[in-house]
Amino acid sequence: MSPAGNEFVIEHYEKKIYDQKQLLEISKALNSTLDYRYLIDVILNICLAQLQTLNAAMYLEPEVDSTMFRLEQSFKGFEIGDREINFAIPMDSPMVHFLAEKPKATMLKAILAIPELTKDPIVTFFHKLGAEVIVPLNAKGRVNGLLILGEKMTMSEYLEDEKEFMTTLASLAGIAVENARLYELATVDMMTSLKVHHYFQTKLKEEMDRCRKKGTNLTLLFTDIDKFKVFNDTYGHQAGDVVLIEVAKQLINNAGKHDIAARYGGEEFCIVMPGATEEEGYEMGERVRKSVESMVVANPNGGEDLKVTLSVGISSFNTNDRSNKDLIERADKALYQAKHSGRNQTICFKPS
């Protein structure tokens, strides 16, 4: 073999070794978290960095018994309008069946060359979107999602090594996403998408322990929808459920990256704010309260739109706190004061 040929072979195997090392590190990263949203973001960013593309998106199952894949909102680069965002992919579609039989990274142009798939609406949709590669995610012997990549920044073709890399990445990602989704199902209230009570209690204890060890701040918000029983009696429980969902969205949308928005029980929601001072907690309480006050919810029964207000109580960790109960009781007392001194306000706990 010529020296040039030897150099090519050496370079090829060096790249193989590098890719394997990268996949090992990626596998560690994917298995180090059960945070569903964070995990999806990690997977998409890995694609951008490793494959030199500006466009990456994932279609996953939104619910346990879903028959469709839907776009995850953390997509990168693709110009996706409202119509495209709502586009759902049936799990029993011809293209998904094709990918299930050949679970590997596949160029869209190769799919377009298959007569029975040419007119598949999903294939047409991806073509219009500017997708170049479709990669099925797999877990427990079935396709549990799709990874979509756009063209490379260099405008060059995807190499076979890169397609192999994507296939392996997708198999790792499929398992990681499935594990994270199962964990989320166990820790998230299905109606409101807030964390459940036992998760809230566990994380609050962890954060209080961290405060004791490191001297950091911690603030807790308790919220309650004003006169919710009267609201339910007036408009019915279906309207009440819609309002709970919309109020929960305000907490989720306003909560910071490291905050924990949870459902304490009934219409009582809370936010755990690691590292936050009482002043920052008050500012958060006011943001949430004002966003709920300005919120207009369509009445599921027809008729007039629905409006509610929120009362908020704030407490902050102090070194005398022995358990979750201490911090919770102070937030609850502040909330009681907010509700019994006019409602629709944020009050920080002050010792009597």
Rank of each mutant, 00 (worst) to 15 (best):
K249M: 02
R263W: 00
G266W: 02
E207S: 11
N31E: 11
V133Q: 04
M58L: 13
G5N: 07
K339Q: 14
V230C: 06
N299D: 10
N86C: 10
N6T: 06
M91T: 10
T202V: 04
L327E: 09
L218R: 13
M295R: 14
V297S: 10
I111V: 15
A255S: 15
Y235M: 05
E293I: 00
A173P: 10
F8S: 07
V135W: 00
F317P: 01
K16N: 08
T167I: 14
S323T: 12
Q337P: 02
G81A: 01
H340S: 07
K257D: 11
V288W: 00
E61H: 07
I46D: 01
L129S: 12
V308D: 02
Y199D: 02
D326R: 05
L335D: 03
A113E: 15
A56K: 06
L23W: 03
T118G: 00
I252N: 08
M107H: 12
F317G: 08
N320A: 07
G174M: 11
L48W: 00
T167V: 10
V42A: 05
G313A: 00
I245G: 09
I122W: 03
S156N: 11
Q250D: 02
F87R: 06
P121N: 04
E268H: 08
H97F: 04
V312R: 03
Y264F: 07
M191V: 12
M58N: 09
K15W: 02
E72C: 11
L146P: 13
L60Q: 13
A56S: 14
G81N: 09
I89D: 05
G130F: 11
G302M: 13
E184K: 11
E11R: 10
A57C: 08
Q20T: 12
V188N: 06
E116M: 15
E14R: 05
T53Y: 00
N344P: 10
I111M: 13
T277A: 07
I89A: 06
P300V: 09
P300N: 06
K213P: 01
M153D: 01
L306A: 11
G215F: 03
L182N: 06
G285Y: 01
G141N: 13
M95D: 02
V230T: 06
Y235P: 02
L220A: 05
E283V: 15
A261N: 10
I85P: 00
T124L: 13
N320E: 14
R37H: 06
T187Q: 07
E329T: 12
L44P: 06
A338F: 09
E25H: 09
H198F: 13
M155K: 11
E283C: 14
M68Q: 09
E84M: 15
F126C: 14
F78G: 07
T154L: 00
K152R: 08
I245R: 15
E164V: 09
S291L: 06
A113N: 15
I122N: 07
I111E: 10
N253C: 09
Q52F: 00
L172C: 04
E84I: 05
K249W: 03
S323Q: 14
V42M: 10
L117A: 07
L129M: 15
K128A: 09
S93E: 09
G77L: 01
